[in-house]
Write a protein that binds this DNA or RNA. Structure first.
Lengths: 166, 166
DNA sequence: AGTGAAAGCGAGGCCGG
DNA sequence: CCGGCCTCGCTTTCACT
């Protein structure tokens, strides 16, 4: 975090390649970015240490593994002092079913994304949260009927360019 | 897709391990799940071919790479015939900035998640979508101020167990 | 910084239980 | 279906540029 060495085009290229396929062998990666294996490996290590790469994960087809539902929950807090946000954020972390939690601008405070076995499980979860008195005034749930798109990579090339999508 | 061979505990374990670290070497993975390398590798290949593993990706710290914002958009369609949904879903795919798109139950039709450079870009994008007449009646935007939680793995162990989170 | 060689180790195939 | 062996190729280091 102290010194941010700038990234050149090769670094960006490496990140993009690994984002698409984290199991690329170092020799293949090196060839893809036009380097020989040694400096390529050194760059990858450097990018990892500098925190540009946070983890390497396998994407699973969860639907084939176990029945589950996704639910988005809009949460409004009772009070809006700094400590109320801190408390909610720290308490909500306990829940394994919680995939995402975002503080948003607009009609409510937090947008949450849960993944649970079924609606009953989700309902239990929300009751549990309310009981624990983490400062929730009200919430509204949107159950996902069908996920049309859920992309993992994309972005990098798009965000680095100046063209607007057509 | 034709024959779904059942997964035993070792398979689940393998998936969980690779979900946490897709760069595990096969020998380390084998040891972690209590197998010798050969059958372990065979299982991984089988799981890949059967579609339980969809991809291996590197998670990037996007915030360090480029400034960007995340926006959730609630979309309501004008009409709700089957063809209206089909049209919207196919048209919306074109947009690189779109990370997620879910059909939801409740007050509106689709919940979208965008990632763009800034608010101006997002606004252009939405104008573009409205102009292209994909059947959007109205939309409402929630700009993410702070992402508190964004987990990639979790789930597997949680979803496979019967205990409720505490 | 990148290259190239060398050593060590893992991937992936094949047989035997 | 698992374990052990074997070979090939990759990873990783190091001296050099």
């Amino acid at each position: 975090m102290l010194g941010l060495p700038k990234l050149d085009r090769i670094d960006i290229n490496i990140l993009g390649q690994l984002q698409q396929n984290s199991r690329l062998s170092n020799v293949d990666l090196a060839q893809a970015v036009g380097l020989s294996p040694s400096p390529c490996l050194a760059r990858v290590k450097r990018l990892e240490k500098a925190g540009y790469i946070t983890s390497y994960t396998a994407r699973l087809n969860l639907g084939k593994l176990v029945d589950h539902i996704t639910v988005f929950t809009e949460v409004t807090l009772k009070d809006h002092r700094r400590e109320d946000f801190v408390k909610f954020e720290s308490e909500i972390r306990r829940y394994d079913a919680l995939k995402e939690c975002h503080l948003v601008s607009g009609g409510y405070d937090y947008l949450l994304k849960f993944v649970t076995r079924n609606v009953a499980r989700y309902h239990e979860l929300m009751e549990h949260i309310l009981e624990r008195n983490v400062g929730v005034e009200k919430y509204f749930s949107y159950i996902v009927i069908k996920t049309v798109i859920d992309r993992d990579n994309v972005l990098l090339k798009y965000l680095m360019t100046d063209e607007q999508a057509g």
